[in-house]
Amino acid sequence: MFDRFLSEREKLIAEYRLTEEERRALLEIDFRSLYEMGVHSLLLGPLAATLGLSFPDYLAILRGNQP
């Protein structure tokens, strides 16, 4: 699932019943929106690390301060 999220996100997302805003947040990997929608932080933190985002930058995004 995680590998598919990284390699063919659009196709994966299409398989789920999601709102327009949920789809957008997932496609753009909008960490702050995803967190506010209720995605668990221990899914988001490791995802940020996998994408090469530093932990302080990731936290800044969650807090609404774009790094």
Binding site: Y35, A48, Y58, L59
Partner: peptide, 8 residues
């Protein structure tokens, strides 16, 4: 408070 806005 793991990987969340309150972290720290």
């Amino acid at each position: 408070w793991p990987a969340m806005p309150e972290s720290g």
